[in-house]
Every structure is written in C-alpha cells, then in structure tokens.
C-alpha cells in the first residue's frame, strides 16, 4: 500500500525532507527517491509538491542550495540542511512525536466517556 503525501498532515512532507537531508545533501529527484526508500516504499512523494516545499524551507532559512556535479557528470541543484534547519528538525520531530502519540492515544481509547 502506498500513501500519497497529499493525504498526510500539512508539513509532513517538509518534515520528511528535513530528515532526509539530515543524512546528507541531495538534489530534488534524489530526495524523492530517498524518502520513498526510507519509508520502505510506503510513501510515494508527489514530486509536484516537492519543489514548492523545498522553496518554503529555503525561505525559512532551514536549507540552502548550491549547484554541484553528480557522479554521472550532470549539473544538479543540491540541497543541504543549515544549522537552523538541524535545530528545526529536532524541534519538529519532538513535536511530531508528541502529536502522533496524542493521536494514537485518542485512537487507542477503549474506555467510555472520559
């Protein structure tokens, strides 16, 4: 089963991009591949929303970009995490855990009216 990111909470894609970038700089297409692999092919990144998301992260100053040459000798724009981005990732991950635990607790509720 695959999940499209459009069906996920807003900001999830950005969170995943940050996490993927924390493993090392990568270009846009590579990021899409990396996220899909990291999710063990459960997510299928809608590539159309990837680039606006990258742009938003750049505006926030969490990532930067530069042009590099790939191993196949092609020019590509690589994105990297900034120190602010690293801090943001920690923050967002912690928040994500809190939120998801809360959601899980709600969903796992077995008692009667609280």
């Amino acid at each position: 089963m695959t999940i499209r990111d459009g069906e996920l909470l807003q900001g999830t894609l950005e969170l995943m991009v940050l996490k993927a970038l924390s493993l090392g700089s990568m270009h846009g297409w590579g990021l899409a591949q990396r996220i899909e692999q990291m999710s063990q092919e459960v997510f299928q990144v809608s590539q159309g929303s990837l680039y606006p998301a990258l742009q938003r992260l750049k505006r926030k100053g969490w990532i930067t970009s530069d042009w590099r040459v790939t191993e196949n000798n092609r020019r590509a724009r690589y994105y990297s995490l900034t120190p602010a981005g690293e801090r943001a990732l920690d923050r967002e991950v912690a928040q994500w855990h809190r939120a998801s635990q809360a959601v899980n607790r709600v969903l796992a509720w077995e008692g009667g009216l609280p």
Binding site: S46, Q47, G48, S49, Y51, P52, A53, Q55, R56, R59
Partner: peptide
C-alpha cells in the same frame, strides 16, 4: 509523475512568495 512542468513552476514561484 511530476504533475506538469507549468504547474510545478507556478507552485514553486508562489512558494517563493
């Protein structure tokens, strides 16, 4: 798969604000 070149271009430009 990308969702159309023009659309992505527009969406990205919007994201630039």
């Amino acid at each position: 798969r990308l969702g159309g070149l023009a659309q992505v271009r527009e969406a990205t430009r919007d994201a630039r604000g």
